[in-house]
Design a binder for these strands. Structure first.
Lengths: 252, 252
DNA sequence: CGGATTTTTGACCAATGTCAAGACCGGTGG
DNA sequence: CCACCGGTCTTGACATTGGTCAAAAATCCG
C-alpha cells in the first residue's frame, strides 16, 4: 500500500505569503459563497478568514489527517488531490473518495468526534484548515455560514449514495469519468480533458472493481471512441455516449 | 413495484392526543438528547417541542415524502419502519436505507432543497415533522441543537459509506442482520430477535444482491446455526460468528 | 541505464445473477 | 371451513460478469 514519505502534518504556511491569491482561491472554495463579499458584512467576512489556516505543501502519500485522530477541524482542498480511505485491521483499504480543489473533507468526523478515515495527498496538496469549534460559533452568529455548513453536510450524504447502487463496470467507469470532468469544470478547469492523479488501483477500489477491470474497460471505451486515454491523461471524446452509459448513476 | 394505497401525506394528528407518550417517545428520538430536560432550559425546550408536528398513521406503501418535492422539513420516525429509495426514469429502484423509530430522515434533502428520494412506509408508521427553517433558527440560538444537527448529518455520511465497499453476500447479510439488531437494541427493543418488516427483494436491493441470493444465504446461515429464520422473523443465535463474518463492514 | 512501480493483457475461475418452477402464506369469499 | 388467489419466498439449473493469477510491457525516477 502507498505509505507516507514524510511525517504527516506540516506547520502552517505563513498566511501572509498566501494573501495574494486568497481571493482567487476563495472563489473556488467550498466556503466561497459565504467568504466572498456577496452581501456578507466585512466584519463577519474577516471572522471567517480569521479562523482559516493555510497548510501545506503535502506531497504524494503524506497524510492530512489520520483515522482515529481527535476531530478538531474541517479541511478544504486548496490545490492538488486528496483521497480519503479506510483501512481495516487486516490491512484492506477502502477508498471513500477523491477530493479536488474547493472541496471539503472531514465532514464525516464531526459526529464520531474522530476522523473515521485517512486523508492522503495524491500529489502536491495545499489545504485550508477550519477550526470546527470556531466555525460552529461563527455559524450561530451568521445564518449564511450555518446554512452553508448544513448544505455541505447534506450534499455529502447525497454524493456518498451516488455509487451505492448495483451497476456494471462500464456504468461505474462512465459515471466516474463524467463526474470528475464535471467537478473539474465546476472549479474552472478544462471540461473534457484532465489528468487522473490516482493510480488505477485506487480508481478500482473506489468503484469496487479490480484494477484489471478498470484497465480493460478504459481500453474498450477508447476502442469505441468514447474517450482517449494516454497513461493517466484522459480526454472525453463522446460525452453523450458516456452519459447514456452512466444514466442510472448520475444526477439527471 | 409497490405502490401507495392512499394518496400520500395525511393531515397532522391532533398533537394533544399524543401528549401522553411524548416524553416516552422523545427518549428514543433523534433529538432526544436535546429535547429532554438534560440541562436545557425550559423555554428552549418548549420552542423545540413547539415546532414538532406529529403526523400519521401511514400504512404499508404510503409515501411520507416524495422525490422532487420541495424540501421543507426533516422527519423523525416515531413508530414503524420507513424505507428510502430512488427510482430512476426507467423504473429501476435503489433502496437507500431502512429507518427505525428514533431515526431521522430527509437529511439528504437540505442541500438540493428537494427530497432526492421517496420515503415509503413499510408498515404502520408515525413520524414527527421538524420544520427546517424553524429548526435552523432554533439551532442558531441553542448551541446544543446546532451541534445535534451537525452530528446527525455527519453520522449519516458515515452510515452511508458503511456498505459502500466490496464485500461478499455473506459479509453483507451478516452486517445487515447485526446492524438492525444493534439499532433495535439501541432503541430499547429486544437485541437478538426481531421482525424483518421489509420483503426480501428490498433487503436484496439495499445490499446489491439478488433476492434469491438473500434467500439462499439466510438459509445457509440457519443451517450453520448462526441464526433462526421463520419467514420474516429472525433470531440471532451465534452473534460472535456473525460478527466475525461482518468484521470488514461493521464499526469496530 | 536499471530497478521499482504501474499498467496491460491473456487464460481461467468463481461468486452471484438470471430464469423458471414450485412452495408457502395470508387474506377473501363462497 | 375450505378453496382460491396474488404476492412472496425458496430452490435448482445454468449463464455471465468481473475477479484472480501470472507474465509481459510500459512508465517513472533516480
Amino acid at each position: 500500500m502507498t505509505q507516507m514519505h514524510h511525517s504527516g502534518k506540516l506547520p502552517p504556511h505563513n498566511p501572509i505569503a498566501d494573501d495574494g491569491d486568497e481571493v482567487h482561491f476563495c472563489s473556488t472554495c467550498a466556503f466561497g459563497s459565504v467568504c466572498l463579499p456577496s452581501g456578507l458584512n466585512k466584519t463577519s467576512l474577516n471572522e471567517l478568514h480569521m479562523l482559516v489556516e493555510h497548510i501545506g505543501p503535502f506531497h504524494d502519500g503524506d497524510v492530512v489527517f489520520r483515522s482515529g485522530e481527535r476531530f478538531g477541524a474541517l479541511f478544504a482542498v486548496r490545490a492538488g488531490m486528496v483521497k480519503t480511505r479506510q483501512v481495516d485491521d487486516e490491512g484492506h483499504e477502502q477508498v471513500l473518495g477523491f477530493h479536488l480543489p474547493g472541496e471539503m473533507i472531514g465532514l464525516d468526523a464531526i459526529h464520531p468526534a474522530r476522523y473515521p478515515c485517512d486523508a492522503v495527498a495524491l500529489d502536491t496538496v495545499f489545504v485550508c484548515r477550519f477550526s470546527f469549534p470556531a466555525l460552529s460559533t461563527l455559524a450561530a452568529k451568521i445564518p449564511d455560514v450555518q446554512q452553508r455548513l448544513f448544505d455541505l453536510l447534506s450534499a455529502d450524504i447525497g454524493k456518498t449514495s451516488r455509487y451505492s447502487g448495483d451497476h456494471t463496470a462500464d456504468e461505474r467507469l462512465a459515471a466516474f469519468l463524467l463526474d470528475l470532468a464535471a467537478r473539474y469544470a465546476a472549479r474552472g478547469f478544462a471540461a473534457n480533458a484532465y489528468r487522473l492523479v490516482m493510480p488505477r488501483a485506487d480508481i478500482a477500489n473506489y468503484l469496487r472493481l479490480a484494477a484489471e477491470t478498470v484497465s480493460r474497460v478504459l481500453r474498450r471505451f477508447q476502442d469505441h471512441g468514447l474517450i482517449h486515454v494516454d497513461g493517466r491523461e484522459v480526454e472525453i471524446v463522446d460525452k453523450p455516449a458516456l452519459r447514456k452509459l452512466a444514466r442510472h448513476i448520475l444526477p439527471a
